[in-house]
């Protein structure tokens, strides 16, 4: 990240990045790197500007953003629910953990053909590919977070005469929140990756399809422009979650972020 723990910009780190771009620019212009379809950063920037003026970039960005939001939200609901259940209940772990461990290592992309067969080239296919692998990080972190809550907190709840549901709601979930947030952030990064993959192979829309479309049209600066925007989107999404977490739970963010 380009930010330090205190939230100020890390100028040294950004300077190094700018230097890399400069070297790239110089290498391409001087002919040191000579590919037919390898543009310098300045051309990519012009590509972003052109696509943005045209309006197509915003349209593709909104599509991808929407898929990520939908896919990540569905995955969060499923992942937190299963994670809480497995974290609380040894019985649930005994019956359910084996299934989870079998499904979890399967690469999400392997389900793209399944999605295509069931739903064709569509948003549904994109969501299948995005949701399935995105469930696991948040699920595993939720389960671990709940299972690792210090047993003393349960004692505290009981001596203060809380009911079992109150103990879950007011003690175990807040205590596990830092782990759940970590899982949610990993899942969000994965949702971006999987949405792009799905748009490349399964749903002709959004930023991922933009990369393929421009590659096939042999517009390298536009192709790289889409890749750059995907990168910027990743940084923005992460910063968004961090900001949201800090606003909602200031005390928790101290430990997590």
């Amino acid at each position: 990240m380009a930010e330090t723990a205190r939230g100020r910009l890390n100028w040294t780190g950004l300077g190094v990045f700018a230097l890399v771009l400069l070297v790239w620019e110089a290498a391409v212009r001087s002919g040191l790197i000579a590919f037919e379809f390898f543009p310098p950063p300045s051309r990519i920037l012009l590509g972003i500007v052109a696509l943005t003026r045209d309006g197509v970039m915003l349209q593709d960005l909104l599509h991808t953003l929407g898929s990520i939001a939908a896919g990540w939200s569905i995955a969060m609901l499923i992942g937190v629910a299963i994670g809480v259940l497995l974290g609380f209940s040894p019985t649930a772990r005994r019956f359910g953990l084996a299934s989870v461990e079998v499904l979890r290592p399967m690469p999400g992309i392997a389900f793209a053909p399944v999605g295509l067969l069931l739903f064709g080239f569509s948003l549904q296919t994109e969501l299948v590919v995005t949701v399935l692998p995105t469930i696991w990080p948040v699920m595993v972190n939720t389960m671990g977070g709940i299972a690792n809550v210090h047993p003393r907190l349960g004692d505290v709840g009981r001596t203060l005469r809380l009911s079992n549901t109150e103990i879950v709601r007011h003690l175990l979930l807040p205590a596990a929140l830092p782990s759940i947030i970590v899982g949610a952030r990993i899942s969000l990064g994965l949702a971006l990756v999987m949405a792009i993959v799905a748009e490349i192979v399964g749903n002709p829309a959004g930023l991922g399809y933009g990369i393929v479309r421009e590659q096939q049209a042999m517009n390298p600066e536009y192709m790289f422009a889409y890749i750059a925007v995907v990168g910027i989107l990743g940084i923005a999404l992460n910063a968004g979650v961090v900001a949201l977490t800090t606003a909602l739970w200031p005390a928790t963010s101290r430990v997590t972020l």
């Binding site: 003393r152 505290v156 001596t159 005469r161």
Partner: peptide, 19 residues
């Protein structure tokens, strides 16, 4: 745990709600 009886634990670090 009865009404009117409360335990204070030795390990305050674990017994307090850090959030």
């Amino acid at each position: 745990p009865p009404d009117g009886v409360v335990i204070v634990f030795q390990d305050y670090g674990n017994a307090l709600l850090q959030w």
